[in-house]
């Protein structure tokens, strides 16, 4: 089978976010870059599907030249090749990103045949757009199922599980299909050294789509105000236990 997984390069923010560029971007000078946890699981799922069923896995990103780093990371885990829609680094809204991805999928499928599955994250880690999977499904005329934590392919169909009301809802759709996954669907592997070496010679096909006018147009980013009060230190080491217990008692939880 053939599986495509879509990933997005995002800054690895951890502490308090600072902004640059007239409050239109995260100051990433001191940060590394990564992909979202959902997408890491998407990559793992793609690799596992090809290990189990044979075929080819492809990774795609729409992002700056530096996003080759994320494509190589995915290939180090076992993805065969990459499609890079190179941008100048400015963000694309979900509608524009999806349209460019659809064009790239159509072009690749015209040459290499259809993807049985297109895997994505449920939402991008940074923008949280919650829409690219639905737009891909609609544009390509394929069933799209969001928020998946269990996936099994058999007999030209895929059975999908989604957490719901303490249990799991089950979907079953025909392939080809578009599926967005959530972290927890699997436990992604770590790259091996041979995997990293092999990834260096795997092909990346670049193209440069034109950024259309944005219809969800960012005005500015705002870091929400939090009451950044320092915690009351109850003590140091095990000697703090009585003070903790007093605090718990005052909360009425004992």
């Amino acid at each position: 089978m053939r599986v495509l997984v879509c990933i997005k390069r995002v800054p690895a923010v951890a502490g308090r976010i600072t902004l640059t560029d007239g409050d239109r971007a995260i100051d990433a000078r001191y940060l590394g870059f990564t992909i979202g946890p959902h997408e890491e699981c998407g990559v793992e799922e793609a690799v596992r599907l090809i290990e189990a069923h044979g075929g080819e896995s492809v990774v795609l990103t729409l992002g700056p030249a530096e996003a080759t780093e994320q494509l190589r990371d995915a290939m180090a885990l076992g993805i065969s090749r990459a499609i890079h829609l190179v941008t100048d680094g400015e963000e694309w809204d979900g509608q524009c990103a999806a349209a460019a991805i659809v064009d790239a999928v159509r072009a690749d499928e015209a040459a290499n045949g259809p993807f049985d599955l297109i895997l994505l994250g449920n939402e991008a880690a940074d923008s949280g757009g919650y829409q690219v999977p639905a737009r891909l499904g609609r544009a390509l005329g394929r069933p799209a199922v969001a928020g998946i934590k269990g996936l099994a392919v058999a007999d030209g169909k895929v059975r999908l599980e989604q957490e719901a009301g303490g249990g799991r809802d089950v979907y079953e759709v025909a392939l080809p299909a578009v599926v967005s996954v959530l972290e927890g669907i699997n436990l992604p592997r770590y790259p091996s050294v041979p995997g990293r070496i092999r990834a260096k010679s795997k092909p990346i096909a670049p193209s440069s789509p034109v950024r259309p006018e944005q219809r969800l147009a960012m005005i500015r980013l705002v870091v929400p105000q939090t009451s950044a009060t320092e915690a009351v230190v109850l003590g140091n080491g095990p000697d703090a236990a009585p003070a903790v217990v007093d605090m718990l008692a005052s909360l009425g939880v004992l």
């Binding site: 006018e213 969800l216 147009a217 960012m218 500015r220």
Partner: peptide
């Protein structure tokens, strides 16, 4: 993080 955006 919050974003202010216009829906055109």
């Amino acid at each position: 993080l919050l974003e202010e955006a216009a829906i055109n």
